[in-house]
Computed example of a mutant assay.
Amino acid sequence: MLGASELAANADLHGGGVLAVTARRDTRRRRLLISVRDAGALYCPAAAASAAGDGCELAEHGRGLDIIHALSDASGWDRIDGTGETLACARLRW
C-alpha cells in the first residue's frame, strides 16, 4: 500500500491531481503492478522552493521517489500522447 500511496501523493502534489489508480496482481510471479494517471501539471515543490530561496521545502518533501524505488523492482513514468497527462508505474514483489 505504501507504493500506491506514494505514487498517488506524487500525482496529487506534482501532477495536478490524481485521475486514476489501477493495481494488477500477478500471482504466478508474485508481483503487483500499480499505475497512477494524473493531469500532467509537473509542478515540483523542491524546484519552486529553490527558486524562491526557501530551503525548508526540502525538509518535508523529496522522499517519495526514493521510497518507490526502494519498494519496487521497476518503476517509471511517461507522458500520455495527446493528453498531456502523466502515467507513473511501479512493479512490487511480495
Rank of each mutant, 00 (worst) to 15 (best):
M1Q: 14
L2H: 08
S5L: 15
E6G: 00
L7Q: 03
A9S: 15
N10M: 15
N10C: 11
N10E: 13
A11F: 04
D12G: 12
D12M: 11
D12E: 15
G15V: 01
V18M: 08
L19F: 05
L19E: 13
A20H: 12
V21W: 02
V21D: 02
T22H: 02
T22I: 13
A23I: 15
R24F: 06
D26H: 13
T27W: 02
R29T: 10
R30C: 00
R31F: 00
I34C: 12
S35I: 05
V36L: 05
V36H: 00
V36Y: 05
R37E: 15
D38N: 14
A39S: 11
G40D: 03
A41D: 09
L42E: 13
Y43I: 08
C44Y: 08
C44Q: 03
P45Q: 04
A46L: 14
A46F: 13
A46Q: 10
A47M: 11
A48T: 06
A48P: 02
S50E: 15
S50V: 07
A51K: 15
A52C: 03
A52D: 05
G53M: 02
G53I: 01
G53V: 03
D54K: 01
G55Y: 03
C56A: 14
E57V: 08
E57R: 10
L58P: 00
H61R: 15
H61L: 05
G62H: 02
G64T: 13
L65V: 07
D66H: 09
D66F: 05
H69K: 11
L71W: 03
D73T: 05
S75W: 07
S75H: 12
S75V: 12
G76M: 01
G76Q: 03
W77H: 12
W77D: 11
D78Q: 12
R79I: 07
R79P: 04
R79T: 11
R79H: 03
I80R: 13
I80T: 08
D81V: 00
D81N: 10
G82R: 15
T83C: 03
G84E: 03
G84K: 07
G84R: 09
G84H: 12
G84N: 01
T86R: 06
L87W: 04
L87F: 01
A88M: 11
A88P: 01
A90V: 15
R91M: 14
R91G: 06
L92W: 12
L92R: 02
R93F: 01
R93D: 07
R93Y: 04
